[in-house]
Design a protein around this nucleic acid. Structure first.
Length: 246
RNA sequence: CGCUGCUGCGCUCGG
């Protein structure tokens, strides 16, 4: 069943809807019963096609097949709604989850926070963040912090992003490569190339390899700031460290 | 560890 699900998922990922349909029908042909994960893959397929009502109906029909929708089922739909800017629908579903017997986990919070930021709704993003902090069952993880830092930087909220960074460190979350590149890019976009360079040196001090992502962010930052000399300096160091991708 | 949901830069091509 795992192998079948993996292949079904591959068809979903590559938007081969005709094959999704025929391959799912094939489960029955060979006498294989779909499991919870199969349903979650199908839900993802409907979301990718923006058929959210069908996705919700499939989710609602799962109990009749003997399955209870789980965090993945809800997270998939929330993610699909959020990706398409339907954040109020996502929030509504999020709020219904407890009554439906599934408590939102940190991934669900991350999806909503990220979605509201990407829609430019800074206020609602913070509202969900506050709800997360207020709760006693779910706690921010490193991805939550990355999402917050990214959103705050894109809104130009430098001071707030520093607060979040400090909170992250205080709670024992180590920055990962996403954290660093998010901050470097965010600071560059705010015109704070020197701040970005400080993060860059912290990153190197923590033995993170400066990869193509961070270097690209810095290169464009230097260029936009008119600091062409440093641009070429970094470019040269990328060659010597072998991180220059073609 | 093995099938399913969340985060970062740039480039290319489409709308």
């Amino acid at each position: 069943i795992r192998s079948y699900n993996a292949l079904l998922n591959a068809f979903v990922v590559s938007n081969q809807w005709d094959r999704v349909e025929s391959f799912f029908a094939y489960y029955d042909t060979v006498g294989l019963s779909p499991n919870l994960q199969t349903f979650n893959v199908l839900i993802k397929g409907l979301c990718k096609r923006r058929q959210f009502d069908k996705a919700k109906m499939l989710l609602g029909g799962m109990p009749s097949h003997g399955f209870t929708p789980d965090r993945f089922s809800y997270g998939t739909i929330l993610g699909g709604l959020a990706r398409n800017g339907l954040l109020l629908d996502a929030l509504e579903l999020f709020d219904e989850m407890p009554q439906r017997g599934v408590l939102p986990d940190v991934v669900c919070y991350n999806i909503l926070i990220d979605g509201f930021f990407k829609k430019g709704d800074f206020t609602k993003a913070l509202m969900v963040w506050e709800r997360l902090l207020r709760g006693d069952l779910v706690y921010p993880n490193i991805i939550t912090y990355n999402v917050m830092l990214n959103g705050l930087c894109k809104c130009g909220k430098f001071n707030e992003s520093v607060e979040i960074w400090d909170r992250m460190m205080k709670n024992g979350h180590r920055p990962d490569s996403f954290t660093y590149s998010t901050m470097i890019h965010g600071l560059c976009e705010m015109g704070n190339v020197d701040g970005a360079l400080r993060i860059y040196s912290v990153m190197n001090a923590n033995k993170f390899v400066s990869d193509v992502v961070t270097c690209n962010a810095l290169l464009t930052g230097f260029c936009r700031a008119g600091r062409i000399g440093e641009c070429f300096g970094l470019w040269g160091s990328m060659e010597s460290s072998g991180s220059r991708n073609i």
